[in-house]
């Protein structure tokens, strides 16, 4: 989205500003991690507010903001079907396998 593009929510002062999810990278090489969310009228101000709210104590070197309504989430009702089948697949963890003593540095 164009950072200065007006969002629907700014067209009426009675409506709430959209919600944004904030992701902060703490230092180069690490992943951006979810820090929280905030309301902002558009992408550019969302970035500035994220800077002011979530990086006040040197938490960040880079910020992403994403409109919360653009995130597609799994349904909590699908939890059993989605995640329980993995419970008994211990062989998917590398620790399941015994390495011969001759193999070093693993």
């Amino acid at each position: 989205m164009n950072p200065t593009e007006k969002t629907e929510a700014t067209t009426s002062s009675r409506e709430e500003w959209p919600l944004w999810e904030v992701f902060v990278r703490s230092k180069a090489g690490l992943d951006h991690k979810h820090s929280g969310s905030l309301h902002a009228p558009d992408a550019k101000l969302a970035l500035e507010m994220a800077r002011d709210v979530y990086t006040r104590r040197q938490e960040g070197t880079s910020i992403w903001v994403v409109r919360s309504d653009q995130i597609v989430a799994s349904d909590p009702g699908d939890k059993d079907m989605y995640f329980d089948p993995m419970e008994d697949k211990v062989y998917r963890h590398p620790t399941f396998y015994k390495l011969p003593d001759e193999v070093n540095h693993m």
């Binding site: 905030l38 902002a40 002011d52 709210v53 006040r56």
Partner: peptide, 11 residues
């Protein structure tokens, strides 16, 4: 007017 700006102004 909003909490985020409250923090920005005091920053």
């Amino acid at each position: 007017p909003i909490i985020e700006e409250d923090i920005a102004l005091t920053n």
